[in-house]
Amino acid sequence: MRRDPEPLLNIKANAEAPADARPPGERDPYLTHLGERIRSLRATRGMSRKDLARGAGVSERYLANLETGTGNASVLLLRQVAGALDVPLPVVLAEVDGHADPAGQEGQGGHRAAEFSQLVQWLAQLPAGDLARVREAARHALSPSESRDARRRRIALIGLRGAGKSTLGRALAAAEDIPFIELNAAIEQEAGASLSEIHSLYGQAAYRRYEMRALERVLREHDTMVLATPGSLVSEPATFNLLLSRCYTVWVRTSPEEHMARVVAQGDMRPMEGNREAMTDLRRILQARTPLYSRADVSIDTSGQDADSSLRALRAQLPHAD
């Protein structure tokens, strides 16, 4: 008898409804959660739905359905398979090279896949507090070693666009008589193209590679500096961990209303251009990134403050030599 090689992925060949089928029109909680997760990830990266759809090669309508919990039923079928295997779905979906070697024995890739599977299953069982401690322990263990004094000589400002990073950074660098670096400018120099050209011509993944290279370069070239970083840098774990390990980080924050007012004053509405729900999107981005921004060494709130007051508040937060 001929066997269907992909019975679980071919929805037409397998017309059975999922075991937990629901009445028509009622959304599955898992698909709803999945949609919220994708929307949160998109917000963390500061991408519009149009940008993500273009980068993924899917229609905006498909992406909208996915984000609202009306995604393809094959996701639920795959989840059922993971449940029958008694493993978290990320283990099934993980892109880990686990092919067997030509002799039919499990090679290095197979060991990597097995280790990854065990790690994900262990992490999935940890309480939130323990998970945060594991993350920080891994960051310290795997990040390049740097003395406390060396970190303190590099001040990195993080936060959403419009918080005042560039203005404060220039003022702080002038007051301390040290170099001021805009990482955006370093990224453009690294790529030989403007930020908009990088995104439109090469895509999000290429931008992240240039961002990491630019950060590595400025860290090599400057033992002392004030660095203003792009708002979305925190969404790339390797790049953000490098920044945290090599710089004294300050989260520059303000209210959503002031973020929006300052962005409009700069004439820059990315990624809200043409979006009538710009403030809603900005709040969503800020909410999604807050747990990441909160990993900074300290934070300052520039809401309702003039430049001089914000600079004084920033300098008061900086570490002093022992």
Rank of each mutant, 00 (worst) to 15 (best):
P7R: 00
K12L: 08
N14G: 08
A15V: 12
E16K: 00
A17N: 08
G25Q: 02
D28A: 03
Y30A: 15
L34R: 04
L41K: 03
L41V: 04
M47H: 07
M47F: 10
S48L: 11
R54W: 03
A56Q: 11
G57Q: 07
G57V: 05
E60M: 11
N65P: 01
T68F: 09
T70Q: 15
G71M: 10
V81S: 01
A82N: 03
L85Y: 02
D86Y: 01
D86N: 10
P88Y: 05
L89P: 00
L89M: 14
L89N: 00
L89F: 03
V92P: 06
V96P: 12
H99A: 15
H99Y: 08
D101P: 08
Q105M: 03
A114G: 04
A114L: 14
E115N: 13
Q118N: 11
A124V: 01
A128S: 09
A128R: 00
D130N: 07
R133G: 03
R133T: 06
A141S: 14
E146R: 11
S147V: 12
S147D: 14
A150N: 11
R154G: 04
R154S: 04
L157N: 03
L160V: 15
G162D: 11
G164Q: 05
L168F: 03
R170Q: 10
R170H: 08
A171P: 05
A173P: 13
A175T: 12
E176S: 10
I178H: 04
P179A: 08
I181K: 01
L183W: 06
A186M: 10
S196Y: 14
I198K: 01
H199P: 00
S200N: 04
Q204P: 00
Q204M: 08
A205M: 08
A206K: 09
R209W: 06
R209M: 05
M212D: 14
R213A: 13
E216A: 02
R217Y: 02
V218K: 13
R220W: 14
H222G: 03
M225D: 07
A228L: 14
T229C: 12
S235P: 06
P237Q: 06
P237A: 04
A238E: 15
N241R: 12
S245T: 12
C247S: 09
W251S: 04
M260C: 08
A261C: 03
A261L: 14
R270Y: 15
N275C: 14
T280V: 15
D281P: 00
P291A: 09
S294K: 05
D297T: 08
D297C: 01
S299N: 12
I300M: 11
G304V: 11
D306Y: 10
S310N: 07
R312F: 05
A313M: 09
A316E: 15
A321E: 15
D322L: 07
D322M: 12
